[in-house]
Simulated scan of single mutants.
Amino acid sequence: MEKTYQFLNKVIEWLLVTIFALLVIDVVWQVISRYAVGKPSSFTEEFARFALIWLTVLGAAYINGQKEGHLSMDFLLSKLPENKRHSRQKVIQIVMALFALIIMVIGGGNLVYTTLSLGQISSALNVPLGFVYSIVPICGLVIMFFSFYNIKKLNFE
C-alpha cells in the first residue's frame, strides 16, 4: 500500500504541475492574442475554466493524501487523550471516504454518464463535457484510497 501511495502522490504532483503550467501558458497566450495581436483566441477562456476545475479537484485529492497540509480545525481534537484522538481521526477519515464515495464517485459518475449520454460538447474546444467532469469520480476514488491509507497509518501509530 505504501508503494501505491508514493506512486499516486508522484503522479498527482506531476499532473498538478503540468496542468498549472498549461494554465499559465494559456492565460499568457490569451493576453498576448488580445492586446498584442488584437484578435483574442477563442479557446483560451474555456481551456482555463476546465484546467481550473481539474486543478481544484486534483489538488483537493492530493491535499487529502498529505494529511498535514489539509485544512482542518483540530483545536478540540488536540485536547483529547491519545487513544480518543486516534479513534476520532479514524471516524473523520471514514466520513471523508463516505463523502467521496457518495458525492464524488456515485454522483460524479452519474454526472459523467449523463453528459456523455446526452452528447454535451464544449463550445470552443469541442470536447465532450463528460471527459471534463470525469475528474470528479476519479478523484473521489483517490480520496477514498488516501482515507483508507490514513486509517491504516493511524492503526500503526
Rank of each mutant, 00 (worst) to 15 (best):
I103P: 13
V112T: 00
P137Y: 01
I143L: 11
N150I: 00
Y149R: 12
Y113N: 15
N110S: 10
S123Y: 13
S123C: 00
L125S: 07
V142C: 08
L141I: 12
M144K: 04
I121M: 12
T114Q: 14
V112G: 08
T115P: 06
L116V: 05
T114E: 09
I103H: 12
M144C: 07
K153E: 00
N110A: 14
K152V: 07
V112A: 04
V132L: 09
L125W: 06
G140W: 02
K153F: 06
S147I: 03
A100P: 15
V142P: 06
I106D: 08
S117D: 06
L129E: 11
N110H: 14
N126K: 11
F99E: 04
G109E: 11
S134A: 14
L101S: 05
I138G: 00
S117N: 09
F131H: 14
M144V: 11
T114Y: 09
L111D: 10
Y113S: 15
I121C: 03
S117G: 01
G130D: 05
Y149I: 02
G130N: 04
F148R: 00
F146R: 10
I121F: 08
S147P: 01
T115Y: 15
G108M: 03
L125I: 00
L141K: 05
I138M: 05
L116N: 09
F145W: 07
I121L: 08
I151M: 08
S122N: 04
I121G: 02
N110C: 11
C139A: 10
F148Q: 02
I143D: 09
V142H: 06
G109D: 11
C139D: 05
L118S: 03
I106E: 07
M104A: 04
L141C: 13
N110W: 15
T114F: 09
S147H: 03
T114L: 14
I138E: 05
A100Y: 14
V136H: 08
L101T: 03
N126T: 06
N126H: 11
F146H: 13
T115I: 12
N126S: 03
L129S: 10
V105H: 09
M144W: 06
L129C: 10
V142N: 02
L116M: 14
I121W: 08
I121K: 05
M144A: 05
V127N: 03
Y149D: 14
T114R: 15
G130F: 11
P128G: 03
S123F: 13
L111N: 10
L111F: 14
